[in-house]
Simulated assay, not measured.
Amino acid sequence: MSQKIRKLQVQGVHHITLVGADRQTSIDFWEGVLGMPFIFDQPNLDDPSQGHLYFDPGDGRLITIFTSEDRKPDRRRTPTDPGCVHHIAFSISQATFWQVVERLDARGIKHSGPKDRGFMDSIYFSDPLGLTIELASYRFEPPEGCRHADVMIEAHRIRVARGDNHIQREHLADAIELLVERTQQSLSTSRTAADPYRN
């Protein structure tokens, strides 16, 4: 008798662990460049010869780094073979996004410059070990009670229905309007657009 196949439902990213170089390089990059508080420090419980540093990226999740004083930074690009990490993206505000170029330039860190992604702005650069880091800033805030993912799926549906190539601001605005209508009540008999300036 075969058993029913069932999902293992995840509910978010718990943490991401990266293999780092020495301890100080990790602290200087993750806290000293990206501003992530260094919150926890212990040995790697699977290999006590390594350290295990924990950083808070701002949402209460964790970025952890295995460190060893025997490893030195190597700025060559990390592998992008199948199964490897291509890049890690971190969320930043629009206020911070528009300071990134100036602040990376002040450190002499090469970067991509701002990239228009339609629904967000992005900039890319490498950590001291060659891992590509993306700083991403959404161009919208979801309606109360909704998540960014809720807006994205609705914007995607709108984009596909219109035959557009990729999500743009108009798709986002229309998705937000749809979600507000769907999730927030109104006493109006009609929620269609109206013109109060007509003669």
Rank of each mutant, 00 (worst) to 15 (best):
A155P: 03
A175W: 06
S68A: 14
S188V: 00
I176H: 06
H148R: 14
D195K: 14
L179G: 03
H111D: 02
T17G: 06
T96A: 08
S126Q: 12
I5G: 04
Q24G: 01
E102H: 12
E181P: 00
R157F: 07
T192I: 10
H148Q: 13
S112T: 12
P128I: 00
T78P: 02
F97H: 02
S112F: 04
A106L: 05
I167S: 01
R147W: 04
S68P: 00
K115G: 04
I16S: 04
E69M: 07
M120W: 12
M120A: 15
S112Y: 08
F38G: 05
S126P: 07
L34P: 02
A136F: 09
G20D: 07
T25F: 09
S26W: 11
N44E: 07
A194W: 12
L62Y: 14
H52W: 15
A194Q: 12
D28C: 07
T17Q: 09
T67S: 08
R61G: 07
V180A: 10
Q184I: 11
D127Q: 04
H86Q: 09
L178T: 14
A193W: 15
G113M: 10
T17D: 01
G163D: 05
P143R: 13
K4T: 00
H87V: 00
I153N: 03
K110M: 08
N44G: 00
Y54L: 14
S137H: 09
R159M: 14
D121H: 14
S137P: 12
W98N: 01
F119T: 08
S188T: 04
P57M: 13
H86E: 06
K4G: 00
I88W: 03
G35Q: 05
S49V: 15
D195S: 10
A155G: 07
R191H: 13
T64A: 13
Q3T: 00
Q50N: 10
L129Y: 06
R103A: 00
L8R: 11
T132D: 01
I109A: 08
L53R: 11
G145D: 14
D22P: 06
L8M: 04
I63W: 11
F38D: 02
T132W: 02
